[in-house]
């Protein structure tokens, strides 16, 4: 886990380090299971039972229920595993980029285009 002094935080960024990997282990393990179609189906059929099977914390269960990416990250979710979760609802990285920044998807895409300068 964290040992060396951590450098200054970067606003809007959670570093997925040992502390977060421990905190998010159950949540990420559930998301990892979504690589398989039968597991995606099982989640969509009975979400509560599926979360219980992986031993999610209350914070994680609430974030899953809300489909709230920022809360999922706060609860220890890693973005690459969360991608498999949001994919269940047809959301891609631009959809959750918009969600996390409080923008419409169109505005989020416009922001990316604006990076051309």
């Amino acid at each position: 886990m964290a040992s060396a002094a951590k450098p200054a935080p970067i606003p809007g960024t959670v570093i997925f380090d040992g502390d977060m990997a421990v905190k998010g282990y159950a949540l990420n393990k559930m998301c990892f299971s979504f690589n398989r179609a039968e597991n995606r189906k099982a989640f969509l059929e009975d979400e509560d039972a599926y979360c219980a099977r992986f031993g999610l914390s209350e914070e994680q269960k609430a974030a899953v229920k809300a489909r709230d990416t920022l809360a999922l990250i706060e609860a220890g979710g890693n973005i690459y595993f969360l991608a498999k979760f949001v994919g269940l609802f047809g959301m891609n990285m631009q959809d959750i980029g918009a969600q996390q920044t409080g923008m419409s998807v169109a505005d989020f895409k416009a922001k990316l285009l604006a990076a051309r300068g």
């Binding site: 606003p11 809007g12 960024t13 959670v14 973005i79 989020f108 990316l112 990076a115 051309r116």
Partner: peptide, 13 residues
Amino acid sequence: HQLDGQRAGFINK
């Protein structure tokens, strides 16, 4: 690129 957090969409040309 940054996919996660309030800083999602960060690009530094």
